[in-house]
Design a protein around this nucleic acid. Structure first.
Length: 324
DNA sequence: ACAGTCCTCCGCCAGA
DNA sequence: CCTCTGGCGGAGGACT
């Protein structure tokens, strides 16, 4: 079966964007096309787009130049490694992306590329994700976006956002799935030796507490928790450290960090435990004790709640394998 | 796995 | 009036 027109995927090459992702995605689609050729399926046209001096955005690279003008069905904003794209650098793309979206294009982003999409205003009120490292900055700049940092990829129909730096793999596979179907998606992922099924970003990101809230006494407590005493700090202790009454401390802590004191401690302890699960061969029980739980069952329960999988499963998936 | 204890934390409200 | 503090009670959750 032949498609009326070959679907085009456009990758936005904006200032500072990560070339590895640009070429990785291009290669991924090339592989999908190659697999598809064996089934007699017309592949995907892949193009790169850059902002022009005189304004506007134009193709600067094209896998099928003979196809003529056309409009991309999907546009991807790749990651940026250092700081997210500035408002000025995003501006030339924003207007154009709005037009393309209005014309029915699917907009997608990887990692910090979400800043480029958000600059269009289209993410307002929508669910989206980005790299956990940029969470604070993203919320600050685009408070009206429902950011869900735990998801590796959020497919919201006309807008797809992906989280981690290597999430371009997931995104690329998702797009292959949409344009060429699940069979080719599976073949492509098998060829690339990646596991296409639901990986969640929270398995990868370590606990990054909010520290930029400006509540000095609370920050002092956070630093204190970071240094030592983590295992045996009660709310009473923390409040004393902040020189506040417990009721006030509770409110201020929650407002500043977004977490209840106990939740915060649990994240801290689970963070330590993850490290030991990944890099040591200590038993899970002893790791539980080491991070402050006298009852291993309680530790397992908390770990499961915070990470979404049990300590043993976590070690199996993320532990560094020693040669027996 | 269960039960028991102790702590957390939220609503409510009064006061500053 | 609004905002912030802080005491009290107690259900529910954390931990043993």
């Amino acid at each position: 079966m032949r498609m009326a027109t070959r679907p085009e995927v456009g990758i936005l090459v904006y200032p500072g964007c990560q070339r590895g992702a640009v070429y990785g995605l291009s290669d991924l689609f090339w592989i999908a096309n190659d697999r598809g050729a064996g089934h007699g399926i017309d592949g995907i046209r892949v193009s790169h787009w850059e902002a022009q001096e005189g304004g506007g955005v134009a193709r600067t690279s094209d896998s099928h130049p003979q196809e003529g003008d056309g409009v991309p069905a999907v546009l991807i904003a790749p990651p940026r490694l250092d700081v997210p794209v500035s408002a000025e650098d995003a501006a030339p793309f924003a207007r154009w992306l709005l037009d393309r979206h209005a014309a029915g294009a699917v907009l997608a982003s990887v990692c910090a590329g979400a800043f480029l999409l958000a600059a269009t205003g289209l993410l307002a009120g929508r669910r989206a994700t980005t790299h956990w490292y940029f969470e604070e900055r993203f919320r600050e700049r685009f408070p009206d976006v429902k950011l869900d940092i735990d998801k590796l990829i959020i497919d919201d129909g006309d807008i797809i956002t992906a989280g981690g730096i290597t999430a371009w793999l997931e995104l690329g596979l998702r797009i292959v799935d949409r344009l060429l179907g699940p069979t080719l998606m599976m073949e492509t992922s098998r060829f690339m030796l990646v596991d296409p099924v639901g990986r969640e970003q929270r398995h990868y990101s370590s606990f990054a507490p909010r520290l930029a809230h400006g509540d000095q006494p609370i920050l002092k407590v956070q630093h204190w928790l970071q240094s030592d005493a983590v295992s045996k700090a009660s709310v009473r202790d923390m409040a004393a450290h902040a020189q506040m009454e417990e009721r006030t401390f509770l409110r201020r802590f929650r407002a500043a960090t977004g977490l209840k004191p106990v939740e915060y401690l649990q994240h801290l302890r689970v963070g330590k435990a993850r490290e030991q699960l990944e890099f040591t061969h200590d038993t899970i029980d002893s790791i539980g004790w080491a991070v402050g739980y006298e009852d291993p069952a309680a530790f397992r329960k908390v770990f499961q709640k915070v990470m979404g999988l049990a300590p043993g499963d976590y070690r199996r998936r993320f532990g560094v394998r020693a040669a027996a």
